[in-house]
Design a protein around this nucleic acid. Structure first.
Lengths: 334, 334
DNA sequence: CTGAAAGCGCTAACAA
DNA sequence: TTGTTAGCGCTTTCAG
């Protein structure tokens, strides 16, 4: 069943069918009705590929999300989506798995969907100029920036929190509460990802407060996985450590850690205070409720969308927006 | 940059370029190298639409997942994916939001991607023959079946747990532990979804055990949302109810409920035992750890994949597989 | 092993 | 308001 068949069955030309299907104004009511009826009768569905191929222009904006099914991103995506639709554009969402390359995915989308712009959600921090040659439309990095890459600031946009600073504030919070032996739970110290960024905030804070960075208090998980965080924490707890507080670089990892703490009979926050960064919904339902520095999800999405649309529409220049986090008090601090 | 440009730059014909790009065997090493080099030099990326349009056959199997970023499905998807790839097919994954129509999405995919088969993950329970006329390839429903629709069993396949029976077992477990006043936390009693199915298991169990179905013990949330479950539970707890146990139809809802219980100073499991169904990772990290009847995620995915491939390859008939759940002991039972 | 050319199903000038 | 037709960028016969 192709557009030709529909045209024949409706007794009109393919262009008329195309016009009806695309809501063009210059079609008579009679023609429209006839076509619609045939379309309905035969359950005709136009072929997207052919459509996309034939088109000369679109109003598509792509969103590439790294990390399939990461509840962390849902609110951000929703906000971006609303922003894009409100401005009259269409959001083309693509979620990719841990193993996939977001740049190549985006590059392909850009060509296939004739994108006007792109937003990368949760990508890597080390994009290079070389890589980005594949992307020829404006793009904004959302929840991350190019900390470990070599892009020129003027060549891309970003919306994110200040990860180093936020980590610093988390540690500061613990310090002010009287903690002097503060452990850190992270993915990898120097993997060039958010983990490294947040760790460096931890390091700087300790130094500023006159504390030593104690290797025994660095718990490396080598993943952001909750189960792995639990296991590594469990392992770490087997040895005795002089330590009263834990800074987990993400809510998710904190959740794993808290289970390990519970099993080791360490009371939170009495035996061990815990603070994290992110503010995902699940951590709000922990017992005790996790104290964490929340990313302003909705605002991140909104700003990213707005920024990109500004650039697309008015040819504005790239910008780098840094948003503030807010402390969710929770019950893991003392 | 099109295939023509590459052909010209490499000094060969477009068909040779196409052959190289698609790993056809009948190309000389020299030609291959030349093409590859030009492709690399210009960062050429073939247009998917044109590709898909031109192709006469594919090895694509579609997977439509309802519920963006539902961590519940990740393991299932992984298992399906492995199954499909191992059999030499390609998985085409499409996640859709709550508002989208999975049948239309699938129908479009079927045509666009020339699918050989489809798996629906987490869809609705009321597909009709009329609707399914849009789907012309074999498909298997994963984690749900056609309980409230009118499909012929022989026209589709399914892999899921027995929701009624599982709910029955959950209640039975509570009953055997001595509970006689058992509340149920659900989405909507009769929304034609999993919630209704599980509720009917609850009802039947109560009847079998000689207990009354007490309207005061039915907590309707009208969504599967954790925050809403929390709120409704909170509301419900404001009134005094003679009740010692809660059956939540999903882990997620149980998590919301447990926070409400905690805030109402109801100790779990002493004041209120809790059991749920699903077995998602997060509920394992609750405190106390949620007792729940786990769906065999990986097995569900594996069976679904295997089933579909059997049908595609050997023209086998449709089948309906019912998998058993397993109790995760947890700490919310007493 | 290679190239020419005919589609794939649609959109979009251009003419009528 | 409508129809004709030339692409869109690729794959795939079919010759050579």
């Amino acid at each position: 069943m192709t557009i030709k068949d529909i045209a024949r069955l409706a007794g009109v030309s393919v262009s008329t069918v195309s016009r009806v299907l695309n809501d063009h104004p210059d079609v008579s009511e009679t023609a429209k009705e006839k076509v619609m009826q045939v379309v309905a009768e035969y359950n005709y569905i136009p072929n997207t590929n052919a459509r996309e191929l034939g088109k000369t222009s679109t109003d598509n904006i792509g969103v590439v999300v790294r990390g399939m099914s990461n509840p962390f991103y849902t609110d951000i995506i929703t906000a971006i989506g609303r922003c894009i639709e409100d401005a009259g554009y269409t959001m083309v969402l693509q979620q990719i798995g841990a193993g996939d390359d977001e740049i190549m995915t985006a590059a392909r989308m850009e060509r296939d969907k004739r994108l006007l712009g792109l937003v990368f959600l949760g990508g890597k921090l080390d994009y290079t100029k070389e890589q980005m040659k594949n992307i020829n439309v404006p793009y904004v990095c959302c929840t991350f920036s190019n900390e470990y890459g070599n892009l020129d600031d003027k060549d891309y946009s970003s919306v994110c929190i200040d990860d180093k600073q936020t980590a610093y504030e988390a540690v500061e919070k613990l310090f002010k509460l009287g903690h002097r032996k503060i452990a850190v739970l992270l993915s990898t110290i120097d993997d060039g990802s958010i983990s490294q960024l947040r760790f460096s905030g931890y390091e700087r804070a300790l130094k500023d407060f006159g504390l030593e960075v104690d290797e025994d208090l660095i718990i490396e998980v080598n993943s952001y996985n909750i189960a792995n965080a639990y296991q590594e924490m469990k392992k770490w707890l087997k040895k005795e450590h002089e330590c009263t507080a834990l800074f987990a670089i993400s809510d998710n990892m904190a959740m794993g850690a808290m289970k390990a703490l519970k099993e080791a009979n360490k009371k939170v926050p009495d035996d061990m205070a815990v603070i994290a960064i992110d503010g995902i919904e699940a951590s709000e339902y922990m017992n005790p409720e996790l104290s964490t520095l929340c990313q302003p999800m909705e605002k991140i999405g909104k700003e990213a969308g707005k920024l990109l649309i500004d650039i697309i529409q008015e040819n504005k220049t790239n910008k780098h927006i840094i948003l503030k986090t807010s402390l969710r008090k929770g019950e893991t601090l003392k």
